[in-house]
Write a protein that binds this DNA or RNA. Structure first.
Lengths: 138, 138
DNA sequence: ACCCTACATTGGACTTTGTCCAAGTCAAGA
DNA sequence: TCTTGACTTGGACAAAGTCCAATGTAGGGT
């Protein structure tokens, strides 16, 4: 937890109460909150934190590579604190919950040279979609 | 082109001028327009078409499986008329253009049973990201 | 060919998600 | 402790999409 804050401070981050609570919210479970969810959880601890500050802080964390932005559904982006190990996502088409998964092999290897159209490809993200056990029986 | 309209009519679609132009816009090149782009192109032919109608029609086409919704960047969704053959997308991180690509193998096979968490998985989408030749030199 | 009517369209208000900015505040180095 | 530039605030704004009551019309029935 203060691992994250430690790293950030080393990179010249100014450590404010607002940034601390945002980092703490993200650093809890392996959840994937939207910006608004982060904001409301942060506001539980620091009631006057502004939405704009949460957005700013999240963008900075993304830029610094500490957090990943995930947009699975064209609705609100979600923020994934597990940026250290590469992983992919499994999304429930009904309720929208997300789980981290670790497929075998490298998806990049599956794309033949002839299909790369001269792009300098830097990464491949895989999203598995289906119905989670909770939603299956409804 | 009227292929599409044909299929739709067989499924009980009421064929209106608005739906026709939307289908025609999508049925052109292998592009991936946003809803607003579809709207403005449709409006070239049928000036008074409402934005809401375009949104409605697009959702119906998606429901009918004739068109795919693609959300690559958390901004506007794009609509992919190439729903008949499965394919994946290659996206330029700078300019946002999208190309259809066909990786080898089945990404679903790469996800071990132990990583499925009881989900009934129905599909896997892969998004390759990089810089396109046009954007590389800037 | 003409009527009906259920289905489609319209336009405008509204919501959600996110960005921007000028003014005020504060963390941290001197 | 003082200073200063970086940070935060709140509110206005923007983009993308949804909703709804009123109006229009495609296509089946006669």
């Amino acid at each position: 937890m203060s691992d994250l804050l430690e790293r950030l401070r080393e990179r010249g981050w100014r450590l404010t109460a607002q940034r601390r609570v945002v980092a703490e919210v993200l650093d809890g479970d392996h959840v994937h909150y939207t910006a608004d969810e982060v904001h409301s959880r942060a506001a539980d601890r620091l009631p006057e934190i502004a939405r704009a500050t949460v957005y700013n802080t999240l963008s900075e964390l993304v830029t610094l590579g500490e957090v990943l932005e995930v947009s699975t559904d064209g609705r609100a982006k979600r923020y994934d604190p597990n940026a250290r190990h590469t992983h992919q996502h499994l999304v429930c088409s009904r309720c929208g919950t997300i789980r981290d998964v670790h497929p075998t092999g490298d998806p990049l290897a599956a794309l033949p040279e002839a299909e790369r159209y001269g792009f300098a490809i830097v990464d491949a993200t895989v999203t598995y979609r289906g119905t989670c056990p909770n939603c299956t029986g409804s």
